[in-house]
Every structure is written in structure tokens, then in C-alpha cells.
Design a protein around this nucleic acid. Sequence first.
DNA 1: AAGCATATACGAAACCTGTCGTACTTGCAA
DNA 2: TTGCAAGTACGACAGGTTTCGTATATGCTT
Lengths: 129, 129
Amino acid sequence: MSDREARTPTPAELRILRILWRLGPSTVHEVHAALATEKSVGYTTALKMLQVMTEKELVERETVGRAHRYRPVAAEETTQRQLLRDLVDRAFGGSVDALVLRALSDVDVPQADLEEIERLLSRERERRS
Amino acid sequence: MSDREARTPTPAELRILRILWRLGPSTVHEVHAALATEKSVGYTTALKMLQVMTEKELVERETVGRAHRYRPVAAEETTQRQLLRDLVDRAFGGSVDALVLRALSDVDVPQADLEEIERLLSRERERRS
DNA sequence: AAGCATATACGAAACCTGTCGTACTTGCAA
DNA sequence: TTGCAAGTACGACAGGTTTCGTATATGCTT
């Protein structure tokens, strides 16, 4: 249990990571302030989360005076990929395109986005040729 | 707590749902047999899961002699959409296309799949015009 | 009718997540 | 130098998930 596993972050952990990706390295105070705008939560809760996340190596911290400044260990992109991989495996039998197709068939996706994705997709496809 | 919430299934629940979607309505015995091929787990564990899932209304059951036959309440497609919606909200700031783009940039997606998706995408786009 | 095989029901333990209260530390201002 | 403000550390608990052991019910075979 003490080692390298790179488990996917829990929902509460992800909420904090998103704040750190947005704000950059931040103190508990700053994280708590940002968190409190979307969800009522105590200061020590934010602190404890960050401590646990440090333990799990989801974040690193640097000492600044008497306080700590936290930063995410993984880039947002990396974590998003990991979460997608996880979902693809758990719910789509490992097929990325089954997931993509399902996502695109969502009625909420605006027409304009479909066109945009189509453009990016063909660019991506060509990049690989 | 007694009512309509439609929470997303937990990982273990999803494993069972996938079996039911694949096999159709099944007994505990059948679910356990299928489950055991991918993961070593006791019979009563499968039974208990199904009981809890019935409680949560993730599955329904019908009595067949002394046994029960279980079926998923929601279609696979519906659950996949729900899980995607959840991930989009938690990790992609609500943007479906951010998720799709990230999924497609995965190096594991074969070239042929990109082409396939492109085809389906343009069909979907036209369907909506 | 007895007894075995096959079911379900139920309770509880181990673990994880998320929340917070309380105790402790430390730097700085008066 | 004393004490307050601003921090961290730690323990604990409530709730949920996952696992399984044990108890109980029931139908079939002889």
C-alpha cells in the first residue's frame, strides 16, 4: 500500500486538482477559498484532503514560511487521459471509439461542436499519416 | 434516501451490470459464474451485490421457482451516457468536445478507428440538419 | 418422511471517503 | 516576553462499498 499505484483521484480530490490546475501552486488558504465558492466546506477539510493527497502523491508541497504551497503532480491532460482510460475499460469494454460515439450521440452536443470536432479529427488523422 | 436518485453504479455494480447486459436476464448462479471468470469472488458476494442493487433499483428481479432472475433496469446505452455526463462534469468542465478531443488524442486509437469515427460523425451531423 | 442440494436472507467486518473538532506550533506585534 | 493570529497535525466518526460467513428456507429424490 505504500507505493506507486497512480490510482485515479476521487471526486473530492478531482475538485481540488481542478482548482490547482486553474490557479497554479496554491496554499491551503487559497484552495479553501476557491473550494468554498462552489461548495460549503470547512478549512480543515481542505487541509486534510491536501494532506491525504500528498500522502497519495497526487500533489507535492513546498514550505513557504510557516505554510505550504501545493501543486499537482500530474498535468491535467494526463489525469483526464487516465480517467478516460478507466471509464473506457469499466464501461465500454476497452473501446475508445465506442465511448466517443456515445459521447457524440448526446443530444446536448451542439451542431457547431460536431463540425469543430470533425475538423480537428481530420487534422489529427492527417498528422498521423 | 428511499427514492428516485439514479446514482451512477459503483465499479463492482458496473461489472455486474455489464454481465447482465451481455447475457440478458440471469440467475445469481449465472452471474456468479460469469463474474468468476474475470475475478475471484464468492457466491454470496454476487448474491449480496444483486440484493443491494435491487434495493437501489439498478436491477429488477422475477421469481423463478425457488430462485430469482435479475435484469438491469436501465439500458446499457443510458448508463454509458450517464457515466459520460458525470465524467464530463467532473473532469472536463462540462465540455463534451473537450472530452472527445482528449479521448481521440489517445495514441492507442488506431488510424482506422479515426476514419470510422469521422464517417459516423458526418452522418450524425447530417442527420441533425 | 428424511435428508441433501440449492437457494436466499441477514449481519458484520474491513476498507475507503469526506468531514470536522481539537490540539499543537510558530512567528510577530505590542 | 507574552500572547494572538495563522498555520499544521492528528484522531475520530459517519456513511458507503465490497466481501463473506452463517443461518434459514425449500424442493426433489429415495
